[in-house]
């Protein structure tokens, strides 16, 4: 949305959007979670939404990014970065220059490293709080946003977070609106200049190979009746041994996590 000079924006939102990848065909597209983030932002009243992407601009990414413009935007801010560069510094620079009230991103990208760490690294750099798996923004008042966070099995947790903040959305957020061809074609990819691109030193050393299909662990339900099967399907995950740590020092907390990881065999020594 183009800023309206008459009306001061009450809520500046920047949505971080990435180039997606269709799971079956691998074709470029708007990434599903990012598109849900855009939808979440657009649904907020009086929101002034800016789309931000950092990455390579070529024919493939152009078509994919236009998918976001097709959701009814005139422009998308693009920070051009060469292949295999670390986009976190560039994004942080742009966000720090014109700090929005809210930054929304998908939980993880559909291609590349897709570690899901980018929002956390950004939050760390900017010193902003981060809320993961947001399903709905219920309202923003007095610099505090009321959010609904999605938990497993359709549960929701109401949270309040002081702004500015970073929110990530996953597939619990409402489905994105259709991307229309006309606005997608007309929209501008506005290139934003930032300082020197920082190469991603670690990524360069990595070797990429196609993922191997791993066997799925089967959940064997020995049920005699339909009722048992239904109960098994609807049952909550059985943790049982879960432990809530309250009022402990970071060291004690880390100690407890380390102990659990050793018990589960994740860390071996």
């Amino acid at each position: 949305m183009r800023p309206d000079p008459q009306k001061s924006p009450s809520l500046a939102i920047t949505v971080l959007v990435s180039v997606g990848c269709h799971p079956l065909t691998g074709r470029g597209r708007r990434a599903d979670q990012d598109a849900r983030g855009v939808e979440l932002a657009r649904a907020l009243p009086l929101a002034e939404v800016r789309l931000l992407h950092a990455g390579v601009l070529d024919a493939g990414s152009d078509a994919a990014l236009r998918g976001y413009l097709g959701m009814g935007f005139d422009a998308l801010t693009l920070i051009e970065q060469p292949e295999s560069s670390d986009v976190v510094p560039a994004l942080a620079e742009v966000l720090a220059d014109h700090p929005p009230t809210l930054v929304i991103a998908g939980t993880r990208a559909e291609r590349g490293e897709a570690s899901g760490l980018l929002p956390y690294l950004l939050a760390e750099r900017l010193g902003w709080p981060l809320v993961a798996a947001v399903a709905e923004v219920e309202g923003v008042e007095g610099g505090v946003a009321t959010l609904l966070q999605a938990l497993p099995r359709g549960q929701r947790r109401r949270l309040q977070v002081r702004l500015p903040a970073i929110l990530t959305v996953d597939s619990a957020a409402p489905a994105p609106r259709q991307s229309a061809f006309g606005p997608a074609r007309r929209g501008q990819l506005a290139v934003h200049e930032v300082g020197e691109a920082v190469p991603d030193a670690e990524l360069v050393e990595w070797v990429e190979q196609p993922a191997r299909k791993r066997p799925k662990r089967l959940k064997i339900v020995k049920a005699a009746s339909a009722r048992d099967r239904f109960k098994a399907a609807a049952a909550k995950a059985e943790g049982g041994s879960g432990q809530v740590l309250d009022g402990v020092t970071p060291e004690q907390g880390a100690e407890a996590i380390l102990k659990l990881l050793k018990e589960e065999g994740v860390l071996r020594r």
Binding site: G70, M71, G72, Q178, S179, A180, F181, G182, P183
Partner: peptide, 8 residues
């Protein structure tokens, strides 16, 4: 409606 509104 489809190409401009995106309202199929």
């Amino acid at each position: 409606l489809t190409l401009e509104h995106g309202n199929t």
